[in-house]
Lab assay of single mutants.
Amino acid sequence: KRLCLVCGDIASGYHYGVASCEACKAFFKRTIQGNIEYSCPATNECEITKRRRKSCQACRFMKCLKVGMLKEGVRLD
């Protein structure tokens, strides 16, 4: 089984260019469509796991980008 490159949960397929789970796919889409900017309360190096993926949105979004999710893949309509 493929794992989500962002949080390590089971991937539902390839989304925005990267093997990812439904939760991270939806999080990435919401962030881009809403043009949301997050800031990390710590040092921008929070560990993102299935259990902790909700704890820091800034680091989760940075990890989405780091593993290769493409903003261009999100439709803005």
Score class of each variant (00 low, 15 high):
18 V>S: 05
63 K>A: 07
7 C>Q: 00
49 T>M: 12
32 I>C: 01
10 I>C: 11
20 S>G: 15
63 K>W: 03
56 C>D: 00
8 G>Q: 14
51 R>G: 13
19 A>I: 04
56 C>K: 01
69 M>W: 07
11 A>P: 03
26 A>C: 11
35 N>M: 06
35 N>C: 09
55 S>P: 15
47 E>C: 08
62 M>W: 09
39 S>N: 15
25 K>W: 15
22 E>V: 09
37 E>R: 05
59 C>R: 01
40 C>L: 01
51 R>T: 11
75 R>W: 10
22 E>R: 04
67 V>M: 11
19 A>P: 10
50 K>F: 13
23 A>P: 12
22 E>C: 12
42 A>I: 13
7 C>S: 02
36 I>D: 11
49 T>H: 04
74 V>N: 11
64 C>M: 06
14 Y>F: 13
45 E>Y: 04
23 A>W: 15
20 S>N: 14
38 Y>F: 11
29 K>R: 13
56 C>L: 01
62 M>D: 11
14 Y>K: 13
68 G>N: 01
38 Y>D: 00
23 A>K: 11
56 C>Y: 00
18 V>L: 03
26 A>E: 14
1 K>G: 05
28 F>C: 01
70 L>T: 12
70 L>K: 14
71 K>A: 09
12 S>F: 10
53 R>F: 13
8 G>F: 06
43 T>V: 12
47 E>K: 08
33 Q>N: 05
59 C>L: 01
49 T>E: 12
10 I>K: 13
3 L>C: 05
50 K>V: 14
62 M>V: 12
75 R>P: 13
56 C>V: 03
24 C>E: 03
29 K>L: 10
45 E>D: 10
66 K>N: 10
41 P>N: 14
39 S>G: 15
5 L>R: 08
7 C>A: 01
47 E>T: 09
49 T>G: 11
44 N>Y: 06
16 Y>I: 05
73 G>R: 11
10 I>A: 15
75 R>L: 12
17 G>D: 10
8 G>S: 09
39 S>C: 15
57 Q>P: 10
28 F>D: 00
72 E>K: 09
56 C>W: 02
13 G>L: 02
45 E>R: 11
15 H>W: 10
33 Q>K: 07
65 L>R: 04
74 V>M: 09
51 R>Y: 05
44 N>F: 13
34 G>Q: 15
38 Y>R: 05
1 K>S: 06
17 G>S: 07
7 C>T: 03
53 R>M: 14
54 K>M: 13
37 E>N: 03
47 E>P: 09
35 N>K: 12
28 F>G: 02
26 A>Y: 03
12 S>Q: 14
56 C>G: 02
25 K>H: 15
62 M>P: 00
